[in-house]
Design a protein around this nucleic acid. Structure first.
Lengths: 331, 331
DNA sequence: CGGCGTATTTACAACGTTGTACCAACGATG
DNA sequence: CATCGTTGGTACAACGTTGTAAATACGCCG
């Protein structure tokens, strides 16, 4: 609880001199510097971050808004953001929204300009209107979601292209009854991935029935399992499925196995996100692997530039990705 | 950026009156309250949290220190902490340590008393010395780790008993060559779980060779896979393995499968933590399931009580757990 | 030795908020 | 009518820090 004042009294100098020593400013007489440093050590002084930031006009925090940290993809992403934030001396405040609009709006509203220096948000259900006049008053970056037509920086991967590559891969292994799991008109990424799916089919003149486009409200294992169950119950079941995230895919794989289908022999599965587990599952999962570290870094860097007054046009940063081919498509 | 002063000028009242309205204090003439509310709306006033906290002497944040958010267990835990924190109007600041001592010590040191109102820490490599004189000056709660002999509140499960139950379960299915994966003298929880393992064996007069105690430095899939590979290469391979977390278990299952072993027929596997994925893996994983929501809630509540001046003796809160029996032990 | 430029230090204000103490107006009471 | 209590409102200081500008000390030149 020692303050600059306490240290100053002990060292016999002014408060400002101590402040100068602490901040490495200006010229301080060696003699005094020594005394101040001793006093600092003796009192165990720690700067009051709140007061400092009040004075400096920054907070030292950035916010990260995600649906749920318990979703591996967001856990991994958050880890990357924290790491990247540290390079700019930022700590990360994490808020969860369960992917629902009300909490998303509420969270944005609570992020006063005085609470954080910036916000990285992963919108799930936000509407364009919710973002048109920046509700936080602070630099923002949108992750993943690209469909919102708002003048806010965005970082993500080319979803259309990624989906195209995933489906091409299925086609190249000779599959021609290719389904998708995860259609959801409320999710911009879903719409884009679906477009990529159709592109890839069209490229080779393949057509698949509309029942092959399986919707999913949430993107959890359970949803993938349920969707797969419905697909396999079709008169003509698909021989490959492209899932819009890895959890859907793992759920789908399990549902298939429960019904006696072998992956990939009977039905091949591709996921999206490349979460840690997908490398070790049985079968291991072929999946689109975005460079999550690069994603986090780019987002944090954008916030950093903006908060330093950069007012260049809105940016849309594309992050590289790869297709990780694993057992679920190599039989 | 509107401040109380701006609002006050617009409404034609004093700054303090606006403050009173904002905080619902005292008696304000309806007439004035109306004017103030109008001015508040007109200016879009948002309180400056930093200034408020400087004045009030609290920060509105608590810190959560974990090894890595990308580890599903910690992702799930963090989600629970955030949820619990919200019930006390706290936001959560998350720091990662990679489970290494230096970052752990550094993080604790950086948590000034003015940065957060409390800290929930999940120590991995911290030594008793690092915690003897509370380095944060703020209420702390230790998670999971119980072996550190320090006067700090602790929340966790009864690791010895949990391990005992897990191993008893393996014994009850007729296995008698039972190994463990995850031994690590630097981890208190590992030591406790190992004790429970030995307890369970002793109860039925079973003895297992020391090679059946497989060490693991980190607790990732890879470590589990490597340990399992070594176990299966023994002259007499085990017919069951108790892994000290789910990731080790999943890695072990995969390693077994790669060598043609069937789980659970040839070798049964039990995990620890019950991460989301374990319900959907192939085979689904039998595991010890701590009540993570309760864990998070208890930790946050402890911080809350302590920060309200509660100075009762150090507490050790035991959180309930169950054994979730799934396919990896039911053949 | 007076004066001047540079090195070092300091007092003061300010960041935006809230607690304290005080002031004003009012009606009610003796 | 003087006093008092209640209700409503305000001025001021303070939280701990740092920027600004002004003050002091130092060394050197003429």
């Amino acid at each position: 609880m020692a303050t600059l004042k306490d240290v100053a009294e002990l060292a016999g100098v002014s408060v400002k001199t101590v402040s100068n020593v602490v901040n490495g400013y200006s010229f301080v007489k060696p003699e005094n510097e020594r005394k101040v440093r001793e006093a600092l050590a003796a009192t165990g002084y720690k700067p009051n971050v709140g007061a400092r930031n009040l004075r400096r006009g920054r907070t030292g925090f950035i916010a990260l808004m995600v649906p749920e940290l318990s979703i591996p993809y967001f856990g991994e992403l958050a880890g990357g953001v924290i790491t990247a934030a540290h390079t700019h001396d930022w700590s990360v405040l994490i808020e969860q929204t369960q992917g629902m609009r009300d909490p998303e709006v509420a969270t944005l509203a609570s992020l006063g300009p005085h609470m954080v220096d910036g916000a990285i948000i992963s919108p799930e259900a936000l509407l364009t209107d919710d973002l048109t006049h920046n509700p936080t008053g602070v630099p923002m970056v949108l992750l993943g979601e690209h469909a919102l037509d708002v003048p806010i920086d965005h970082v993500g991967i080319d979803n259309v292209q990624a989906a195209r590559i995933a489906v091409r891969h299925l086609i190249s292994m000779g599959r021609n009854r290719i389904a998708v799991i995860g259609q959801n008109p409320d999710r911009g990424t879903a719409t884009q991935r679906l477009a990529g799916y159709h592109d890839a089919l069209n490229e080779v003149g393949l057509t698949c029935p509309p029942e092959y486009v399986a919707p999913a409200v949430r993107y959890h294992h359970r949803d993938g399992a349920e969707a797969m169950a419905r697909l396999l119950a079709l008169p003509e079941a698909p021989d490959a499925v492209f899932c819009f995230n890895d959890m859907l895919a793992h759920g789908a794989v399990r549902a298939a196995a429960e019904r006696g289908y072998h992956v990939p022999q009977d039905i091949a599965v591709v996921g999206f996100d490349n979460t840690e587990h997908s490398k070790y599952s049985l079968p291991s999962l072929t999946t689109i692997a975005p460079d999550k570290a690069a994603l986090a870094k780019a987002a944090v860097n954008l916030i950093h530039e903006r908060s330093n007054g950069d007012s260049s046009p809105v940016q849309d940063v594309q992050i590289p990705f790869t297709l990780e081919v694993r057992e679920s498509t190599t039989g």
